[in-house]
Design a protein around this nucleic acid. Structure first.
Length: 326
DNA sequence: CCGTGTGTTGAC
DNA sequence: TCAACACACGGG
């Protein structure tokens, strides 16, 4: 349940202001005059009923916090919950910028091409799933900052970071790693052969705790902490890895395959393949007291269906994978 | 146990 | 497309 500690949305927008475009309706005559029970929560003073938000895409939560959501293709995409209304509204705006472009931004001032060039590039360079993930985990701020920093150092040394929108068709195979028992054990880490690590995921001196983002065949995002362990002289993926092992039912001997978008971008891909060939391991689970055997592929498809993270063309992928399953 | 975010419905 | 509402589910 994610309950990130103290940080909210990853922060408020610095320059943009809340009162911005909030004139609902056409008039512009009457201002919204919040009034809203004073300050904080969505909880109506007396008792049960929740106050609506004056922001688009923001819904009250029973505990006085605020949820953010955006719709795409008749489907709701949940953007997370936030302590304050404005943070939720801001999360909506970020998502809207990615999903619908500048005109979709509805709560605060849209980013300006000139002034917010870096942030726009940051958003454009990421998939919808990635943006949503950052919002839900409240890491948007940090990652934007890191991104800017990386971009500036890159620009200083050589060539400005590639801007480019993500085409996304061709992938270049980087390398495979056959999972060892400890890669899938309790250590929560995957050792990346030094040779490949240094070639494809170079780690700067100062990069104490880098973060690598991958997409799997379902378009699902996987983010791992990536670092070098002096003690064992090895490069490892740590935080986030155990979840991958679990969800993919990864077993020793299975192969983890790393790819990169051919367009020499940032986009990285990760796949789990069973020891011999194509699909990941089958999983057994219990449904209504009956043992069912299904592939993790179907499991993930169902999962996606349930969670409504159908954005970014997962539809196609589902069909592909469904076909592959036959 | 408790909050999240999903299921669902009915407006716009 | 959107938010209101209820509460099942799952993380801690």
């Amino acid at each position: 349940m994610e309950m990130s500690s103290v940080e909210d949305a990853g922060g408020e927008p610095s320059g943009r202001r809340p009162e911005g475009l909030m004139r609902v309706g056409s008039g512009a005559s009457d201002v919204i005059d919040p009034e809203v029970g004073g300050s904080g929560g969505a909880e109506a003073e007396s008792g049960r009923k929740l106050l609506s938000s004056r922001y688009k895409g923001v819904v009250p939560q029973p505990n006085g916090r605020w949820g953010a959501q955006i719709y795409e293709k008749h489907r709701r995409v949940w953007l997370g919950t936030f302590d304050d209304e404005a943070s939720a509204a801001w999360a909506y705006d970020v998502a809207a910028q990615r999903f619908r472009g500048r005109d979709g931004v509805a709560n605060f001032e849209p980013l300006e091409e000139e002034a917010d060039e870096a942030e726009l590039a940051f958003i454009r360079a990421r998939s919808k799933a990635e943006v949503v993930d950052m919002l839900r985990k409240h890491t948007y701020r940090d990652e934007l900052r890191q991104s800017k920093q990386a971009a500036s150092t890159a620009a200083a040394s050589k060539r400005p970071a590639a801007t480019a929108a993500p085409p996304e068709k061709e992938r270049q195979h980087l390398f495979d790693k056959a999972a060892t028992p400890s890669d899938v054990g309790k250590l929560n880490r995957l050792v990346i052969p030094k040779q490949h690590a240094e070639k494809y995921f170079p780690l700067g001196e100062d990069d104490a705790g880098a973060l690598l983002s991958f997409e799997d065949g379902d378009g699902k995002l996987w983010r791992f902490r990536y670092s070098y362990w002096n003690s064992s002289q090895s490069y490892v993926l740590t935080r986030g890895w155990s979840q991958f092992v679990k969800e993919k039912a990864l077993a020793a001997g299975d192969v983890v395959s790393f790819h990169r978008s051919a367009s020499e971008e940032k986009r990285l891909f990760i796949e789990a393949k069973a020891r011999g060939g194509a699909p990941p391991a089958a999983r057994r689970f219990r449904l209504f007291g009956v043992d069912i055997v299904g592939s993790s592929i179907n499991g993930e498809i169902e999962n996606n269906k349930r969670k409504s993270d159908d954005y970014d063309g997962v539809e196609k992928i589902k069909q592909q994978r469904q076909a592959a399953f036959d």
